[in-house]
Every structure is written in structure tokens, then in C-alpha cells.
């Protein structure tokens, strides 16, 4: 393989990885926008999405097969179900804590993450579940680089979801309300916006996107397990910070940048393989230290 081929190959890998990161990062950034909470459980929502999608796919594969048709049905089911799970988590765990000290709500989020993880651990016995699909191995060749159709469709679906979210946030009433709530919650309440409902809608949307990413990851990597959300949760957070937390476009951009960075980093000696996670966290720490507002975030003045 020539250098160009390697670069193109890593570009493709980076785009696939980056679109997963972007979808998960969107939820982080939206939830952070409305309630200023770093939702530690978000990576585990992604994991639950993968398992719900797996269950749905097993149910429908008898009738419509486990091809793209079945996968999209499963993804839709997972998005709706996990979206509601997100709303339930918000109502049960976070709503009573909104006025509590920040440390308490962070620990509550951590506890929710542990509950989801250990529930999945208990249900699956800690085993890796094979995520089987009927997708073929066809694809297109770009020189010496072979790009799978699966990768193309996954990136395209991620883009469609992101465009959908962008339209939702910029064109609909709830989208407008969401932006307003992230600016000033109290003023929204005075203006007659049902803030609680806006928060619930935000959790629904963020969780649904994470679930979609979970199903996509199942399709792409062919296996799912209870701990799969931990690392991607951390990385998607990194992506959200790179893009500027609270900024929706920033999260998409940050996800893609992180995906590409990681893909190219695997080609650098001593960083590839096992060290690539260290590389990611290193990037996170550097961004937080030198530009905590990220690429597109607005600087926030902490008021007394």
C-alpha cells in the first residue's frame, strides 16, 4: 500500500469512527446545554441502545430479514425505546437533584451509569453478544483501498440523523425552546416555556441519537457487550469538549476531528494500538487546559 492509500484508508476509518463519536457527543452537548449536567450515563445509554437494537433485530429478522431493512427498523425501535429511557432517567434521577450541589448530581449521574452497566452485566452474564446481520461484504475499490458498503451506509445514516437534529433545533418550536432554555432557564419559565418538558425532549433526542450510534456500532463491529459504552462515553465527551461543549455544530465537528485524529494516530509508531486511548485523553487534557471553550463554544463567565 502506498502512503496515499494508507491515508485514504485511515480517512474512511476516521469518518466511520468520527460519526459514532459525533452522534454520542451530540447528546452530551445538548444535555449539558439545557441542565449544565455532564451526563456520565450517556455512554451507557449508547450501550443499552445497542442491546435494544440487537433484541429488535432478532425479533424482526424472521419476517423482514437482518438486512438494511431490518437494521433500520431495529434502529428506529432502539431510538424510541432508549429515548424514553433517557426521559425516565431524567425524571427519576436528575430532576430531584437539579437544585442540589453540583457534586451530588455528578455522582448521581455516575450512579445511573453504574446501574445501567451492571444491569446489562447481570442480564448478559458479562458475555460478548454477537451482533449478526445479513449484510454482504460488497464495496467499492478506490485504488488499493476497499470501502465497505456498510461503512458508506452507516456514515450516510449518521449524516441524515445529524441533519435531522439540526433542522429540529433550528426550525421547530421545541428546538427554539431548547436553545432558549440553554441560555436562561429562569427567563424561559417567566416567558411561559414549559422548561421541564423541554428538558425531557432534550433527553429524548440525545438518548435516541446515542441509541442509533449504538446500533450502528453493533452493525459495524459485529459484537456488543455491557462495557462498550465506557470508552466511547469518554471519547464522545472529549469530542464535545473539542467542539465546544453546548454547541451542536461543535459536537459534530469535534466527533469527526477526534475520529480522524485517532485513525491517523494509529499510523504513527508508538502511538498506534494500545496507546491510542492515551493519545485521546492527552488531546482532551490539552484542549481543556489551553482552550476549555473548544473550537465553537462560547466562553462562560461564572457568576457569583
Amino acid at each position: 500500500m502506498s502512503l496515499t492509500d494508507i491515508l485514504i484508508q485511515q480517512l474512511v476509518n476516521g469518518l466511520v469512527l468520527g460519526s459514532f463519536y459525533a452522534l454520542v457527543a451530540l447528546g452530551y452537548t445538548m444535555i449539558f446545554g439545557v441542565i449544565k449536567l455532564l451526563n456520565f450515563a450517556h455512554g451507557d445509554i449508547y450501550m443499552v441502545g445497542a442491546f435494544v437494537g440487537f433484541g429488535a433485530l432478532s425479533l424482526v429478522s424472521g419476517t423482514i430479514g437482518a438486512g438494511w431493512m431490518g437494521i433500520f427498523v431495529a434502529m428506529f425501535v432502539a431510538m424510541i425505546a432508549v429515548g424514553f429511557l433517557g426521559v425516565v432517567i431524567e425524571q427519576v434521577a436528575y430532576r430531584p437533584m437539579l437544585s442540589a450541589p453540583r457534586l451530588s448530581i455528578l455522582i448521581t449521574a455516575l450512579a445511573v451509569s453504574l446501574v445501567l452497566q451492571n444491569a446489562a452485566l447481570a442480564l448478559t452474564d458479562g458475555q460478548v453478544t454477537a451482533f449478526r446481520t445479513d449484510l454482504g461484504f460488497g464495496g467499492v475499490s478506490l485504488g488499493a483501498v476497499f470501502v465497505n458498503y456498510t461503512q458508506i451506509v452507516l456514515v450516510a445514516s449518521a449524516i441524515v440523523l445529524m441533519i435531522g437534529l439540526e433542522l429540529f433545533v433550528s426550525r421547530t418550536m421545541y428546538g427554539k425552546a431548547m436553545r432558549a432554555v440553554s441560555l436562561d432557564k429562569d427567563m424561559c419559565r417567566l416567558m411561559g416555556i414549559n422548561v421541564q418538558r423541554v428538558i425531557a425532549v432534550t433527553f429524548f433526542a440525545g438518548s435516541a441519537l446515542a441509541a442509533a450510534a449504538g446500533v450502528m456500532a453493533g452493525v459495524q463491529y459485529g459484537r456488543i457487550w455491557y462495557f462498550m459504552g465506557f470508552l466511547i462515553g469518554l471519547k464522545a465527551f472529549t469530542a464535545a469538549v473539542i467542539g465546544g461543549i453546548g454547541s451542536i455544530t461543535g459536537a459534530m465537528l469535534g466527533g469527526l476531528i477526534l475520529g480522524l485524529l485517532e485513525a491517523f494516530a494509529t499510523q504513527i509508531p508508538h502511538i498506534g494500538g494500545e496507546w491510542k486511548d492515551v493519545f485521546t485523553f492527552g488531546v482532551l487534557i490539552l484542549v481543556l487546559v489551553f482552550k476549555p471553550t473548544g473550537l465553537l463554544g462560547k466562553s462562560e463567565v461564572e457568576r457569583m
Binding site: 434521577a93 442540589a100 455522582i107 453504574l114 444491569a119 452485566l121
Partner: peptide
């Protein structure tokens, strides 16, 4: 294998009811 789950639920309940 349920014990970790029980523990996580207890942690959550403690945060909610006795933070």
C-alpha cells in the same frame, strides 16, 4: 452477578434520598 447491580441501585437511592 446481581450484587454489583444491587450496589449501584443502593448508591443511586442514597444520592436521591440521603445525598
Amino acid at each position: 452477578s446481581l450484587r454489583l447491580l444491587v450496589f449501584a441501585v443502593i448508591l443511586l437511592l442514597i444520592m436521591l434520598f440521603r445525598p
